[in-house]
Design a protein around this nucleic acid. Structure first.
Lengths: 360, 360
DNA sequence: AAACAGAGGGAATGCGCTTTCCCAATTCGT
DNA sequence: ACGAATTGGGAAAGCGCATTCCCTCTGTTT
């Protein structure tokens, strides 16, 4: 027993497929009451489920939203995905998921796949990169997006515009004020602190990381501090851990030389890296915040119970996902196309125990 | 400029659409070398992307895998989703995501939506429930799955079979030995411990929770312990937190009466609840493992840096997602249909600091 | 009462692709 | 060397639905 079709429903109801279609999907032309009822009953008794593929083909729109993330198991992306999912439900659409591992080449493939499925819109989360090795991939991704938009697709990208992408109609960027917020975090941390600052950043060229580093340095400068040293590492927990090991050695050496050495303050460009670094310090016998302060960025929900509570910058990740998805929604006719206020994303510096001055 | 079609490619290459189709998707009949090359070049120069909807309609298969989770931002589901995603890539399919919040009614809607999109297979993660309030939803979900399978769809469900679902062809269950593992955990914890055991469980009727509770009690019994008291709460962090508050009060009362009172050992049926409970104890001034032991279940990756390190049962969540997805893969012809060994999922009791006997 | 507008239903077309089915041009057998 | 088997390509028929166009039937206008 194959799935039943509209034609079968129509036959059972004794009407034409056209009529059946009209009643079943609420077209502008509503057939007579009695007929409508007959059709509905027929559909019910057959357990009719419209074939979305056929509908999509006929209407050339699929009711699909494509979401591109680096890794769905990363809580940062998972939180955004939740927002996207939520907004998709509002629009009565389904979300197609693609995880790319972060490379623009894979992202380009994902866009192509979404285009093939005629996804109505695409949300790209995850950091853009301008590393040399990604240059070709970026160009291809930009070209693919370009084509997608030209064919009527709508795109929202979280954070930074795709490198090299021209601002087309239907191309939206949800700006995240990484730089400004990192600056504010630096200012708050710098107040009344005299130790060295060290930044654990991601690979050079990752915009999210670079923006946060730049912002932090600016904040430091405004507070009268010299620039912090920057350690480059992988943009994940183990990157943070490795950098943390290096710093632990350094801290211990400093403490050995001078027991009253000022405390180091570590800023990891995201929470997951910060947790990794904290784990590394701990494994070396150091305690936070007694031996060093540490701060992260994102305020990942799952990590809030971590002790010592991590100072960080709260980002409304779920809202970001929601906003991005909404940005791709076609404006109802009459609504000004450019009137979209593109609600600004704001974050909030959240100081917790991991950067408290008082020793344990 | 609308997306180019096969027909356009064919025209440009000077061949028929049939031929173009044959070369572009590697059908059994491979056209001549020179023609193939011409077609490929034409496709390239037009930037042709096949319309997956049309392909799906013609082939009646969509290359889609539907994934149903309660909440994609929950690290448990996120980890499974990663495995699913990975296996989907192996099969060159894309994954459609549906988050349901846990209700069978929503799950039924998701199955219907997947069926409408003609998803090749569906993976259902998340706990089954046999609560009275879910009875109707379960029946509907079972019926929907039934229909889906009958129409050739393949389903894999993680953990428990859907309540009321008949074992159809194409219906797979990835068994997770929750009960056995919980028993082993109990046995390990009970060894040389004389304090009371308390279980923080999810709502009654949630199979995952109930199985773990039952297993734990059995393990306790085998070790010569009496059954543990069971506290019911929500199956998430805040459920664990609330239960933790109750227990904290109790622990403090006991300590007040008798300073050498034996230490309570808490088993929360999943890690997230355990973390919540631990947070509650801490907020009440209690320390783990000094004032109480606590253990969870799942071994969520993001939570591994939590201190005190949480004793738990390691579940290969990503593998589970992968296995479930693979189970829905149609066997290559010739391979025995039932020969699928349905690789068993195994877990591992992982004792860490949170249940160490020695006080801090 | 005749002419007209409008409503409601059906036939037919097309969305883009796959896949028989069919036909012409080969190659092979003996 | 001639018919048979095979190869390689095209024409055409759907896949399941939305939608345009057309027709008929009813209700309205002068």
């Amino acid at each position: 027993m194959a799935a039943s079709t509209l034609t079968e429903v129509a036959r059972l109801a004794g009407v034409s497929p056209a009529t059946a279609s009209r009643v079943l999907n609420g077209s502008a032309r509503t057939p007579g009451k009695d007929i409508a009822e007959r059709v509905r009953q027929a559909a019910d008794s057959l357990g009719y489920i419209p074939n979305a593929q056929a509908q999509g083909l006929a209407k050339s729109s699929s009711g699909l939203i494509g979401l591109i993330v680096h890794d769905i198991a990363d809580p940062y992306f998972a939180a955004i995905a939740r927002g996207v999912q939520d907004a998709a439900r509002e629009q009565r659409k389904m979300v197609l998921l693609a995880t790319t591992g972060g490379g623009p080449a894979e992202e380009k493939d994902a866009v192509a796949a979404f285009a093939a499925r005629r996804a109505d819109s695409i949300v790209i989360a995850g950091s853009r990169s301008c590393r040399a090795e990604d240059q070709e991939g970026n160009a291809q991704l930009a070209a693919e997006l370009d084509r997608y938009c030209r064919n009527g697709g709508r795109v929202a990208v979280v954070g930074h515009p795709v490198v090299g992408a021209t601002a087309l109609e239907g191309y939206h960027v949800i700006e995240v004020p990484n730089q400004e917020l990192a600056g504010r975090l630096a200012a708050d941390l710098a107040a009344g602190r005299d130790g060295d600052f060290v930044i654990i950043g991601g690979p050079e060229g990752l915009y999210t990381s670079d923006d946060r580093i730049r912002g932090f340095q600016e904040g430091l400068a405004r507070a009268g501090h010299g620039p912090a040293e920057v350690l480059r590492s992988a943009f994940n927990r183990s990157g943070g851990y490795e950098a943390g090991l290096q710093l632990a050695a350094r801290i211990k050496a400093a403490a050995a030389g001078d027991a009253a050495a000022p405390k180091m303050c570590i800023f990891a460009v995201n929470d997951v890296m910060a947790i990794g670094a904290a784990a590394a310090l701990r494994s070396e016998g150091l305690r936070i915040p007694r031996d060093a302060s540490i701060a992260g960025f994102d305020d990942i929900e799952t990590l809030r119970d971590f002790r010592p509570a991590l100072s960080t910058v709260r980002l409304p990740l779920e809202d970001i996902g929601r906003l991005a998805t909404r940005a791709t929604r076609p404006r109802p006719a009459g609504e000004d196309q450019d009137a979209a206020p593109a609600e600004a994303v704001t974050g909030e510096v959240t100081l917790r125990r991991s950067t408290e001055a008082a020793a344990v």
